[in-house]
């Protein structure tokens, strides 16, 4: 049968509008279910209520965990790895609190547990810097697909920890992604990871006479909306 459709003005990934707001979600759902009463169609209606979470309200959001400075070490890669591990350590109690309060976590696609986050971070930093570390024990998939799932788990870890911190309401998706990619050491590692894997893929393509080499395209943990790496900030 022709569908009855409700168009909603919310961010992609948020069709019910606002997380942790049952009344708002029920409002959307009742509007959708109400379309079943129509006697002719097709039907497409606009949902008239905007999400209270907007770019303007998001502008005030910031993560209270300070970005760790890059330590003075022998190489930039080692400095970034140390800062990353310090960052993960700062997030760890907030992620543990998130799991305690919600009784769940989205971490786990890699086959690992949130307690493995320091090892995941170190592994991703090593790969990003050009090393080829031994795969972690317990991964659910072989490399390179395991890198994608570790990156997904790292994002889940960061977002769940950030959402748990007091002081402000949780931001929308765009602000949260901006924080991850542009304001964290993990974001820097993601860009380095993308650049290394893309470079190696380009080399393989060149060796293949300019044609796509066999196999899937390289793992890329960066969303297309954030493809441009931000300008480096002062440590």
């Amino acid at each position: 049968m022709p569908s009855r459709s409700l168009w909603v003005p919310f961010e992609l990934g948020r069709p019910l509008g606002v997380p942790d707001d049952a009344d708002f979600q029920i409002g959307v759902l009742k509007s959708l279910l109400g379309l079943f009463n129509r006697k002719s169609g097709p039907v497409i209606e606009d949902y008239p209520i905007e999400s209270p979470v907007t770019a303007e309200t998001d502008a005030a959001w910031s993560c209270t965990i300070p970005l760790p400075p890059l330590p003075d070490t022998t190489t930039p890669a080692e400095a970034l790895k140390q800062a990353l591990l310090q960052e993960v350590g700062s997030l760890a109690p907030w992620h543990a609190e998130s799991m305690r309060r919600m009784g769940r976590t989205s971490f786990g696609l890699s086959g690992l547990t949130p307690e493995s986050m320091p090892e995941v971070a170190a592994f991703l930093a090593d790969v990003a810097s050009g090393e080829n570390p031994e795969p972690l024990s317990g991964l659910s998939e072989p490399l390179p697909i395991a890198i994608r799932y570790m990156a997904d788990d790292a994002k889940a870890y960061y977002m769940e920890a950030a959402n748990e911190q007091p002081g402000s309401d949780s931001p929308g998706g765009t602000r949260m992604w901006t924080w991850i990619y542009h304001e964290t050491r993990m974001g820097q590692v993601f860009y380095d990871l993308r650049d290394r894997l893309a470079s190696e893929y380009a080399d393989r393509m060149a060796a293949n006479g300019g044609e796509r080499p066999p196999g899937p395209p390289p793992i890329n943990p960066i969303s297309a909306r954030f493809a441009v790496r931000p300008e480096p900030t002062a440590p």
Binding site: R14, D20, M159, N163, G173, P221
Partner: peptide, 11 residues
């Protein structure tokens, strides 16, 4: 990778 999981992770 373009898919926004942040809302799902929260609720």
């Amino acid at each position: 990778v373009n898919f926004d999981r942040s809302g799902f992770q929260q609720d």
